[in-house]
Amino acid sequence: MRIWGSRFLIAFACLFGLATSPQASEQSVQLEGETIRYSLPDGFCLLDPNNQPYDKMLLKNMEDAQNGVNRVLQVLYLCEHLEKARSFLKSHDFVYSMLMAPTPNGADVVKLPLGMDKSELFQTIKRNVDQSLSEVDESAISDRLNAALSKNMETDGNAVDIQKIQNLGVLKENENALYIGLLVSAHAQGRLHNIASVFAYVPVNQNLITVSSYGPLEGKESYVKLLSQANALVVDVVELNSF
């Protein structure tokens, strides 16, 4: 069963956009007839594509960016950026999370065997990740980050809208999820943006979903913050959907 790969890790969302007004705390999404519950974190909002043209455009860009290897279930954006995005003000501030379902064949979501051991699943995924860390080692994150940034400097400076994603390896593994660090470089708004991302694989009953968090790169601290952000959402998803 193939549930990842280079295309899966490289598929990425549109980087600059925003969400709507805050919703009630507990939310849910539908996945193949099943309900996946989660809580909206404090300070985050949901996209409102049915009522906001900008959100509709943004969500379509995010879905198109996945190139068929992920199904976007929900986007949670930091509310404080709402007015800037809706007013089309130039801003380099963005912090958001996404709930997605892998679709490695471009159509069907991943269904896990009944009773599949999580550690077995995580070991299978890790075999496809070049580097791994048993825990959050800030010095190791820094070393990997510096190496990745050096490679980014070699990107053709005349290219437009180049998007480059580099795998920083496994940052954390616990009983709930496997967390991978990604470094994204993208040309947008006339400049090169470096974006930090933490991407978590989360088994929920017989479904495999991903929880990913994104923000501007501000050094290794960005990964520590995003790891905490993603982990809080993962814990919430697991607790609300355990039965």
Rank of each mutant, 00 (worst) to 15 (best):
S91R: 04
E138M: 09
K126S: 15
R86S: 05
G169D: 00
S150W: 01
M153H: 07
Y96C: 03
V69R: 10
G106K: 06
G68T: 03
A147C: 02
E154M: 12
F94W: 08
K126H: 02
A65W: 03
R71L: 12
K164F: 09
K164Q: 11
L73P: 01
T124D: 11
K118W: 01
A159S: 14
K118L: 00
L73A: 07
N158W: 06
V136N: 00
S119W: 03
D55A: 09
F122I: 05
L149A: 01
G106L: 06
D117L: 06
L58K: 07
L76G: 01
L78W: 12
L121Q: 06
Q163D: 08
R71Y: 04
L114V: 13
N167K: 03
S150E: 15
L121M: 10
N146H: 08
N105I: 05
Q166R: 07
D108E: 15
L73E: 03
L82G: 08
S132R: 11
K126P: 02
A85C: 09
S132V: 04
K164A: 10
S139T: 12
D64W: 06
P104L: 03
E135T: 15
L76I: 15
K164I: 06
K60F: 03
Y96I: 01
Q163T: 14
L145V: 02
D156A: 07
S119M: 11
S91T: 15
Q74R: 15
A85N: 12
L121K: 04
H81Y: 09
F88R: 15
Y96Q: 05
P104G: 10
S134C: 02
G169K: 00
Q163Y: 04
V95R: 09
Q74P: 01
A159Q: 13
R86Y: 11
L73T: 06
L168G: 01
D137R: 08
I125Q: 05
L78V: 10
L78A: 11
K111D: 06
D137N: 14
L76A: 06
A140L: 12
K111Y: 09
L133V: 00
D161E: 13
V160M: 12
M153Q: 15
S97I: 03
L145A: 05
N61H: 13
L78S: 11
Q131V: 08
L149Q: 12
V160A: 08
Q163C: 08
A140Q: 11
S119E: 14
K84C: 04
L76F: 07
K90I: 11
V160E: 09
T103A: 05
R144M: 02
L59W: 04
K151C: 05
P113S: 04
L168P: 00
M57R: 15
S150P: 00
I162K: 14
E154K: 13
A107P: 02
E80D: 14
K151L: 12
S134Q: 15
L149S: 04
V110R: 10
P113E: 06
V160P: 01
S87A: 13
D137E: 12
Q131E: 10
S97R: 09
L99G: 02
S87V: 02
A148I: 00
V72K: 09
A107L: 13
A85I: 04
A65M: 04
N167F: 00
M153L: 13
K164E: 08
R127S: 13
Q123I: 01
N152L: 02
